[in-house]
């Protein structure tokens, strides 16, 4: 894990303003899944989602200076991504060029859906950040535990992670402690 992963958004933005390429890369990678989640809510196809991804990052790139003092970058990203999704869908509706024209039109309830889920999106973003800060082994263990279809026994986890059964419990305990600390640091709770 590079040192930039530990930086706050404000620190990364400040470094981007000094033309620090690594800071920009960290910022882009940090928020790509949040943007992806929102494009999913709008049921965009792959090409349209990628267009939104680029548009949001272009806005971020162009407004770095004004975002220097922004308290919560995740909220700004969500707002801009939703706006870009709406713009794209409106444009596509007019031209009949949706990536997935047969997909159900979610525009009538997309706004409501997002209003209800903004907190969830932000929590998911924070959780991903906290997990990303874990050492590799812990990250895998936590992902197996919470993100994937969970194995029912230590034997299955042992097989998946090639770890002795006896060490899974203590290792997982230590990983959960680390996850808790990371979540505390980024104000998850």
């Amino acid at each position: 894990m590079n040192e930039y992963a530990k930086f706050t958004d404000a620190e990364l933005v400040a470094r981007c303003l000094e033309e620090d390429h690594d800071a920009w890369a960290t910022l882009v990678y940090r928020y790509q899944r949040l943007i992806a989640s929102i494009t999913r809510k709008f049921r965009l196809g792959a090409d349209d989602a990628a267009d939104v991804y680029q548009s949001v990052n272009l806005a971020l790139f162009q407004q770095l200076n004004s975002l220097r003092s922004h308290q919560k970058l995740s909220s700004w990203i969500i707002t801009v991504t939703v706006r870009e999704c709406w713009k794209l869908r409106e444009r596509a509706r007019r031209t009949g060029s949706l990536d997935e024209p047969d997909a159900p039109d979610p525009s009538s309830d997309a706004h409501l859906l997002l209003e209800e889920n903004i907190q969830l999106l932000e929590q998911q973003h924070l959780l991903r950040r906290a997990v990303a800060l874990l050492p590799d082994k812990c990250r895998t263990l936590i992902e197996v535990l919470f993100f994937r279809e969970s194995p029912n026994s230590y034997e299955e986890i042992s097989r998946q992670l090639a770890m002795p059964v006896a060490s899974i419990g203590p290792t997982r305990g230590r990983c959960l402690e680390k996850l808790k600390k990371n979540l505390e640091k980024i104000d998850f709770f």
Binding site: V28, L34, A36, R40, Y53, Q54, N57, L120, Q124, L127
Partner: peptide, 19 residues
């Protein structure tokens, strides 16, 4: 919230362009 995470990574070429 973890199982509800439907995020994904964008194609590497798109990210490379942004970077």
């Amino acid at each position: 919230i973890a199982p509800l995470d439907d995020s994904f990574e964008f194609p590497a070429a798109v990210t490379a362009h942004i970077l």
